[in-house]
């Protein structure tokens, strides 16, 4: 299998690595990595902002957040 390693796997590995580096540079130049951490906040909005837990056991939802008493 030696020939295989040198003739095929090695060039492929080089190709793969360089395309990864290229893609990384490309995306970085297009500003896709700027403000990267902002992405983590994309699941929150005005309705359910950061700082508001959204899941509770039945009947355990804090009263302050939903001011109306349960019927």
């Amino acid at each position: 299998m030696d020939w295989f390693f040198y003739a095929v796997a090695l060039p492929m590995a080089v190709l793969f690595l360089s395309s990864t580096v290229y893609a990384f540079c490309w995306s970085s130049q297009r500003g896709q990595l700027r403000a990267f951490e902002k992405g983590a906040e994309s699941i929150f909005d005005d309705e359910e902002p950061i700082g508001k837990p959204t899941d509770f056991f039945p009947g355990k939802m804090p009263v302050a957040k939903t001011p109306v008493s349960k019927s």
Binding site: F36, E37, K38, G39, A40, E41, I43, F44, E48, P49, I50, G51, K52, P53, T54, D55
Partner: peptide, 18 residues
């Protein structure tokens, strides 16, 4: 999704996620 959503706190590091 659910971990940050339930806590109301963004995931610690988005870089690490990637």
């Amino acid at each position: 999704y659910f971990l940050p959503k339930v806590l109301g706190k963004p995931i610690h590091s988005y870089y690490l996620a990637a």
